[in-house]
């Protein structure tokens, strides 16, 4: 194949959470445009191992866009130049031969770097643990038509539930705000009868945990929505505001 790519990669290296990071530049030849971005990273790591250098640390798991592990800030955008996909679904055909690609970790006070391109996203887990679940005992599996749910509500709940918690919203937000994530997690439960039972407590505890962890305040720029690999709408943020304000008024 003649259309292989030669790339210059400018990648963030950082030994551990406390160390000062720096950019290092690597060259990579003969990258197939059909390979995925993470496969390109694998090729680079193999090259580094063969040169007796330390390979890059980066998060990845399912490599099919559903787990939310991959998290690279590529050429000025979370998950790179394509829309509505995760880094693992990005392909090298999106890049040109001879291009310089800058790869950085998510940057936000809420997501400190652990090593190289890996950031600590346990803040999201703590927010979920604060209330992003239902504790209603549901018993056995009921018939699907036992609780009628309007189709539009079911659709909206499903759209919100497609959030994979990757953190691209926080990475893209000029305020490092986690509102899109929290609003998706509050919305997909608040829209359904099973989730409504605990909606008040959920909205209050998840928002208070989000604030406590030092995520920023939403200023409605909408950057999160543009960069979200799952296309979560900021209409969810309006719903979260509603849920939270109503919950607080009931106090």
């Amino acid at each position: 194949m003649d259309n292989n790519l030669s790339l210059t990669l400018k990648i963030w290296r950082q030994n551990d959470a406390k160390a000062k990071g720096r950019f290092e530049t690597y060259s990579l030849d003969k990258v197939s445009p059909d390979s995925s971005f993470l496969e390109m990273m694998d090729i680079l790591n193999e090259q580094l191992v063969n040169e007796d250098k330390e390979p890059l640390a980066f998060d990845h798991d399912c490599r099919e866009g559903i787990c939310g592990m991959c998290s690279l800030y590529i050429n000025g955008r979370p998950h790179g130049p394509d829309d509505d996909i995760t880094t693992c679904q990005l392909h090298m055909r999106r890049f040109k031969d001879g291009e310089t690609i800058t790869i950085e970790p998510w940057r936000s006070a809420g997501f400190p770097v652990i090593k190289d391109l890996i950031v600590n996203r346990s803040g999201f887990d703590q927010i979920i643990a604060a209330g992003g679940y239902t504790s209603v005992s549901t018993g056995g599996v009921p018939d699907a038509n036992a609780i009628p749910i309007p189709k539009p509500d079911a659709d909206e709940a499903m759209d919100a539930a497609s959030c994979i918690g990757c953190g691209a919203c926080v990475a893209a937000c000029k305020n490092g705000s986690a509102m899109l994530f929290v609003s998706a997690k509050v919305s997909h439960l608040a829209l359904l009868p099973q989730g409504k039972v605990e909606a008040v407590r959920r909205a209050k505890s998840m928002v208070s945990k989000m604030d406590e962890l030092g995520f920023g305040n939403c200023t409605n720029t909408g950057a999160c929505e543009v960069e979200c690999p799952k296309g979560i709408s900021i209409a969810n943020i309006a719903r979260l505001n509603r849920e939270y304000l109503c919950a607080k008024i009931q106090d």
């Binding site: 400018k10 990071g21 950019f23 800030y73 590529i74 050429n75 000025g76 955008r77 800058t102 950085e104 940057r107 936000s108 006070a109 809420g110 770097v113 893209a172 937000c173 000029k174 305020n175 490092g176 705000s177 030092g214 995520f215 920023g216 305040n217 200023t219 409605n220 720029t221 909408g222 950057a223 543009v226 960069e227």
Partner: peptide, 29 residues
Amino acid sequence: LLTAQNNKARGNDKYSSGNKTTEVMWASK
């Protein structure tokens, strides 16, 4: 107050490749 908190939440490390997110109104930022 909110602007100060938001700058703190953004953190000290800036993206060296900048921010190329499109479709965001300039005024909103």
